[in-house]
Simulated assay, not measured.
Amino acid sequence: MPLHQQFSRRFIDRFMTFEPISLIIFALMAGGIFAFLTLTGEVLEGDTHAFDEEILLALRQATDLAVPIAPSWVTHAVGDITALGGVTVLSLMTVLAVVYLLLARQTAIAIFMFLSIAGGWVVSSALKLGVARPRPDIVPHLVEVHDMSFPSGHAMLSAVTYLTLAALLSRAQQYRSTRIFLLATGILLTFMIGLSRLYLGVHYPTDVLGGWCAGAAWAAGCWLLARRFIEREPKNSISIR
């Protein structure tokens, strides 16, 4: 059989033979996409407006909407947490992770990780421009913002970056406990960053939910592709098993 036919057959066989964990990841990806599309429809129709406003108002003092309900030190901590979802920090984390994988001779995962995260960032920007939802103005913003509101860039990009980093870095780990720790850390950071955007008054709750759904779906899709086609063992290039 010619080489290109062997390659094609191995690629198709590898894609079609799903393991149970791969089916779970696929279900998470499909569920995230469905939830995002459903939520986007509700947002565009204005059905979530009352819910969004109620949550934002509940996080502020009734006598002064510029003052959060928590002490000032909490506001300072939330500002630090939200910075973890900013472009500067996410870019630095991505570069450091890619360099680590390259030094560990995990070239395939390093390249795939960079392309996955960069692609997620492009999708996030496109979704914001497509929906073009203005930022909430019901409460004063505690940080300066300029772009559109839905989906939350911090929520989506943190999910894309931290979940993808956790999923792909875990493939280079020998022990199950370290893989679980990486995934739990990625989920925790994504969750905290999304909530910080609500507290600061710069996003509606549905913005954050939309960002989580889209980002998690993207990360799950990347994880699924990595499990199917990228070797876990150190290699100098991507290989098909």
Results as ranks from 00 to 15, higher is better:
residue 90 L to R: 05
residue 62 A to C: 10
residue 82 T to W: 07
residue 152 S to A: 11
residue 77 A to L: 15
residue 148 M to W: 15
residue 13 D to R: 15
residue 171 R to K: 00
residue 137 D to T: 12
residue 185 T to S: 07
residue 102 L to E: 01
residue 8 S to W: 03
residue 47 D to P: 00
residue 52 D to M: 04
residue 219 A to W: 02
residue 222 C to R: 01
residue 12 I to N: 04
residue 122 V to A: 15
residue 53 E to T: 12
residue 194 G to F: 11
residue 230 I to Y: 04
residue 151 P to T: 11
residue 209 L to E: 07
residue 153 G to M: 01
residue 43 V to H: 00
residue 135 R to D: 00
residue 193 I to G: 10
residue 167 A to G: 03
residue 228 R to H: 13
residue 12 I to Q: 06
residue 130 G to M: 12
residue 92 L to E: 06
residue 171 R to M: 14
residue 25 I to L: 14
residue 167 A to F: 07
residue 83 A to C: 04
residue 184 A to M: 12
residue 130 G to N: 14
residue 41 G to I: 00
residue 64 D to T: 09
residue 146 H to R: 13
residue 67 V to S: 01
residue 137 D to N: 14
residue 65 L to Y: 14
residue 138 I to K: 10
residue 202 V to F: 05
residue 11 F to Y: 10
residue 18 F to A: 15
residue 132 A to L: 03
residue 209 L to G: 00
residue 124 S to K: 11
residue 27 A to R: 05
residue 157 L to N: 15
residue 101 L to G: 01
residue 153 G to W: 02
residue 19 E to L: 15
residue 211 G to P: 05
residue 127 L to A: 05
residue 226 A to E: 06
residue 164 T to N: 05
residue 34 F to K: 08
residue 21 I to L: 14
residue 56 L to R: 00
residue 28 L to T: 03
residue 24 I to N: 01
residue 234 P to Y: 03
residue 74 V to N: 09
residue 175 Y to T: 14
residue 194 G to V: 10
residue 151 P to D: 09
residue 111 I to G: 08
residue 217 A to T: 10
residue 63 T to M: 10
residue 149 S to W: 04
residue 107 T to E: 05
residue 137 D to Y: 03
residue 194 G to I: 06
residue 11 F to N: 02
residue 48 T to R: 02
residue 103 L to K: 10
residue 52 D to R: 01
residue 83 A to S: 12
residue 7 F to D: 04
residue 185 T to K: 04
residue 223 W to F: 12
residue 153 G to L: 04
residue 137 D to G: 11
residue 217 A to P: 01
residue 221 G to R: 10
residue 231 E to I: 05
residue 30 A to E: 08
